[in-house]
Amino acid sequence: MDKFTVLTGIAAPLPEENIDTDKIIPARFLKTTRRSGLGEHAFDSMRYLPDGSENPDFVLNQEPYRKSEILITLDNLGCGSSREHAPWALLDFGIRCVIAPSFADIFHNNCFKNGILPIVLPRTVCEELMEDARMGGNARITIDLPRQVVVRPDGSEVPFDVDPLRKHLLLEGLDDIGQTLQHEQSIETFEKRRAQAQPWIPGIVLD
């Protein structure tokens, strides 16, 4: 996983609520056995017209937003399915940071697991940032994770919260399996204790 420290880039405004994971990546593209390559289908139904050509009205088809690294939306981003293909598609497109007034839980979690920083900011602030983003190529927005601030094009700063453990993993680019396995002794102790307390939990053994 790539580290996330300070990101300066173009932000795309997508002023919609309840952007679901089917919209981020429709189910028919989930038949892959890889993590990469989903970027061309990110937001497929919004991005392409029925004949397969690009929809010129969709923000990610417009300059300079084709190179967006930040996406700003309205409430409940990523609702619906648990598919991690949604953050994989965003990442493959080039998005490293998503900003919204609220996120669906599983999507929020899946972002962190893939080096994408999800930032929760009040709706009014998101709307202001979208105004900044509409200035296009002249409006670079900086996400400074170590200092936990969004730096707007005019230099003013908006602070944001992030879970300390998740911040640490993002800054270091660490996956959390290795981290959990450092607690293997505790897991073993738990398993022994539970086998005694609840011996009736059966293992699944097929005949």
Binding site: S82, I106, N110, D175, I177, T180
Partner: peptide, 28 residues
Amino acid sequence: DSHTSTHGALGALAFGIGTSEVEHVMAT
């Protein structure tokens, strides 16, 4: 799969997870 919540009908804590977490559960 997000509809893992179904199994909560039994009085179990059941929830959907992403693929990174699937791997985490497999390993740990």
